[in-house]
Amino acid sequence: MTFGTDMMTSNTTGDTLLKVEHLSMKFGGLMAINDLSFEARRGEITALIGPNGAGKTTVFNCITGFYKPTMGMITLRQRDGKEHLLERLNDFEITKSAKVARTFQNIRLFSGLTVLENLLVAQHNALMKASGYTILGLLGLPAYRNAAKAAIDKASYWLEKAELIDRADDPAGDLPYGAQRRLEIARAMCTGPELLCLDEPAAGLNPRESAALNTLLYAIRDEGVSILLIEHDMSVVMEISDHVVVLEYGQKISDGTPDHVKNDPKVIAAYLGVEDDEVEEVIAVELEGGDH
């Protein structure tokens, strides 16, 4: 039973899904992103890492339409070959037509709605069409009733995956932190995306919650949905990502497999700095931790 998206076909694996070219974003005099280019491939988990203030979240906001980039082109190539220029679309259109979903660094759930309702809101556009833009649904036609039932099935499919099915009827604000993170990801998946952008999904999670998150991310990748994620926790990045892009001061300093990036002297310099011994030690331990 696959509700999310159809299983990927082998010939599309490794295709370029998202192509960011010469992206720049200026806030007044501050150059938050400077001529950044990278690619995310279909069926892969791409990680965007970098020290604090490197511009990772800004890149995310440009891709998902919350910021309009000063310069550059962001192309999304869908499975059926359709191309979207994301910098020209409104934020809601990027989710609606280009099929890019996102989560937020500080969780943004509809806390007064139940867990199930959160997932139903995410299926707004599909249900809107099924309800004949409300008018047919208001008359109580069976077409909408069936669509509503299918929407609940899709929601429970993702609740199962996120291990939240037992709490489906509780208010979202009542969930513990780790569960809220997973719910936000499940909610994004209910929009039926091809690319899922996660802004620090592991922030503040304990090791058990972190493991549950990884399981969920693998499940999403196995559905054929590509993931672009920002992460601080090196062990998570090194463990799950297929491809890592490293940013510093809004510029790309390295790009490649986790192993390649880990041994890149530029990355080590960026993370370790040159003088500060204490930071050096901490990061070194973190990088070590990524090995197993």
């Binding site: 937020f104 299926q123 707004h124």
Partner: peptide, 25 residues
């Protein structure tokens, strides 16, 4: 119970999250 009504309530809870879910606010 319709998508529009849920979107209204979602809008009350968090407008930015609404936009991230493809809802035309």
């Amino acid at each position: 119970r319709m998508p529009i009504g849920r979107a209204w309530e979602a809008l009350r809870e968090d407008e930015i999250a609404c936009r991230s879910l493809g809802i035309n606010t």
